[in-house]
Amino acid sequence: MELQKSFRVVSSAIDKLRPDQATDFLARLVLILANEIGDAEKIANAVDRALSPVSQGEEG
């Protein structure tokens, strides 16, 4: 249930922010998590996976 808890806590945080604050918040969160993970290859892989729906959307 860890992923579910994470989903809830992040979405709750975004709900409290104005739309123009959400992007900045997510960028800060990424930096903190990247530091926690401490593995640039894992982050690069995650970035690719997160970009995948965008790429597929453009192809479609």
Partner: peptide, 20 residues
């Protein structure tokens, strides 16, 4: 620029940001 702003915002509370 977006990530730099994030780094700047975190600097006062997150020491790990400094080398960045």
């Amino acid at each position: 620029a977006l990530m730099r702003k994030a780094a700047f915002d975190l600097l006062p509370t997150e020491p790990f940001i400094l080398p960045l």
